[in-house]
Design a binder for these strands. Sequence first.
DNA 1: ATATGTGCAAACTCTTTGCATGGAG
DNA 2: CTCCATGCAAAGAGTTTGCACATAT
Lengths: 122, 122
Amino acid sequence: MQRDTRQRRAMRRVFMSAGRPLTPEEILEHGQQIVPSLGLATVYRYVKTLTADAWLAEVELPGGGVRYELAERPHHHHFLCRSCDQAFDVHRCPDEIEELAPDGFQVDSHELILYGRCAACA
Amino acid sequence: MQRDTRQRRAMRRVFMSAGRPLTPEEILEHGQQIVPSLGLATVYRYVKTLTADAWLAEVELPGGGVRYELAERPHHHHFLCRSCDQAFDVHRCPDEIEELAPDGFQVDSHELILYGRCAACA
DNA sequence: ATATGTGCAAACTCTTTGCATGGAG
DNA sequence: CTCCATGCAAAGAGTTTGCACATAT
């Protein structure tokens, strides 16, 4: 049986208002503004739990470790800023994208990552 | 001025006949069949050099660390087979792909990964 | 002869795990 | 009152770096 703690409520709140994929370090920083004693090990542990519960989804972008975002959201992709290293959502998607595979290949999903400088860093 | 050593010739040869992206560990194993004394630190160092020289390119696919492949090849993407876990090249690419970013974002490159079952596993 | 490249081991970074304490139920 | 969750610190895994020696030029 899962218990509801201050740390867990804080972490869920961080994701609810994040709007973009977060690294464990970012989750820690934002979470500590709500519960200052929050520790990194707790972040890693609960993030794994939430991913297993399909409440979070893993996002693997170059330039470091895994990031996490709310699962159950509309189809989207990501933009990775080379300057500030933050990830942003890209809500548009070319619809013919899964027809690019070689003959005989069955595509069931895809990931698209854009790189460059975000609006704030441009 | 760069020097040409047995280790470096061995590593370049490994990539010339690899035909797929390699992890540092794979480079080490294959390289040691040519130069047994080859060390992991040398692999990391030379791979970085070759990437800076644009002779190699980094490939980041989910499920582990960075892989490397020959750089000077036509623009392409990757298809990752969920069954055999092998990566294949995808040579087609939607041309309007970099126009999908939000306003004010400057895109300089992109990566596209298709997931599914390859022709052999389908 | 000179300075770059190499191998080793230590340092670093990121993530996971063991354990005693804290706190939800 | 029970256990699950937490925080800390140590342990792992992957990568980088400092140093003395080897070697390409």
